[in-house]
Nucleic acid binder design. Sequence first.
RNA 1: GGCGGCAUGGCCAAGUGGUAAGGCAGAGGACUGCAAAUCCUCCAUCCCCGGUUCGAUCCCGGGUGCCGCCUCCA
Length: 511
Amino acid sequence: MQLRIYNTLTKQKELFEPRIEGAISLYVCGVTVYDYSHVGHARVYVFFDVVQRALRAMGYHVRYVRNFTDVDDKIIRRALENREDCGSLTTRFIAAFHDDMRALDCEDPDVEPLVTTHIPEIVEMIEQIVARGHAYVVPSEYASTDSTATNHDVYFDVARFPAYGALSGRSQDDNQDGASDRVSHDARKRSQADFALWKAAKPGEPQWDSPWGKGRPGWHIECSAMSCKHLGQDFDLHGGGKDLIFPHHDNEIAQSKAANGGGFAHGWMHLGFLTIDSEKMSKSLGNFFTIRDVLARFHPQALRFFLLTTHYLHPQNFSDKALEEATRRVLGVYEKLAAADAVLAGRQPTGNGVLVPTIGEEPSLVTESRRELLEALADDFSTPRALAALSEPMNALGAALLKPKAAGNLEIISHVRALAAQAGQLLGVFQHDPATIVAQILEGARQRLFPQGSDTLEQVEALLQARAQARLDKDWGRADELRGQLAQLGVEIRDSKDGSTWRPLLAEVGA
RNA sequence: GGCGGCAUGGCCAAGUGGUAAGGCAGAGGACUGCAAAUCCUCCAUCCCCGGUUCGAUCCCGGGUGCCGCCUCCA
């Protein structure tokens, strides 16, 4: 199967060929750890988790590197506000990020490098850039007040790198014109477009020794140094959010090629933004939700499913309505899988992992679905197509579960169940024990409906008992009336031959 | 001001130079005491105007609208 990936560099979907046959090196820009991550971050890392899973499933050996930026202006500022040192701040938020990723079933990257443990590599790379004449050293802006005057900044000389801006597709002239007022003018820079590779230490800041005195790395150089260290100077794929295209990735390209004398990442993948009311979710706008905010209200599988329903290149709008819909979809699928497991109990191993279907021949709709699932992922990781490929088998499963003993239905149940497990491995949804997830989602909804301390639950129990008696008495009018009262309380009734069960009414979409 | 992206049924969302996946909602049906759940069936000509083409939603040009980037950002 041919793997096709959209490359920001060429603005085209290209046939992807790894530099080394059968092996793929992938670097994804991680988070700056000064706060909890928001759902926009979740979108990026869930997506690359699927990329990584899909590539491995296609038989590639994948080396996946995702960094933490643990030295940065925002970190320093936040630590000061909190009156804690940077190290304790970043340690805390790295742990929080790992918790979030685990909740979302993102597998760990092969390497998660920290800036603070790669200072020698960074210094070495800057030295090379300076040696090749692509950067210059200027005295710290504090030089006049610093009696020793030994600390210096190092700036990348954009004018010496003609290809600068190739990724974002903008010329340096373009940048000059509309340069925002955020750009501080600095007379020590040859061009205002020049960016810091090394920043001279200010009192109280994290600092390391270097040929330019005490200081710390600039924002962009870390990713260059860490990607080259862990993946080599030439590697296959580099990714992140669209907002990193400029300046971060343009700068990475410039400084890396300046240092290496040539190579760097071949393919560039950038995710569209997660939006709120069609506006970019970002910390500066304040219109964001942290991952943990969202997970307090929705099941992680629902969030993950939601994030996969839009192609990664497009913007995706975040809303309660969308999450509620995702919740009901995920619940619906897991309920069918739970029912399938009940039917298959003792006949076929169930639970996590890829199942080996043991009953009969594989129905063609399962074969077709699997083919489409894999093709969708090979075609620029189209997770919406991949999810859509599951619809027909899930419908067939629902139908077969109505009459599990009818001819051919056991085969369908067995093979669709196995297909779901395989899809779960690829996408990271539908891979858990179904009964457990169903219970978790319903329990979450129950707690929202009846917060602790609420006495409504007793009321519900009483109504349920009364209705059960009315049904025994075949007093249908009374039973329906009670069902209406329960519905008012947000309780949905399901009658069956074995009695009635209830569950919280999950919020309706579009109401 | 410069650069770029998007525009598909009530909502969400795939996709293709030859008359448009999937989901939600809606309608009808099966099932049910009635419902719910589940299953079946039905439900679009792809922002506007030109052009290229035998043929365009998909290619080109123009327009309108929305969004993003222009050195904090996933």
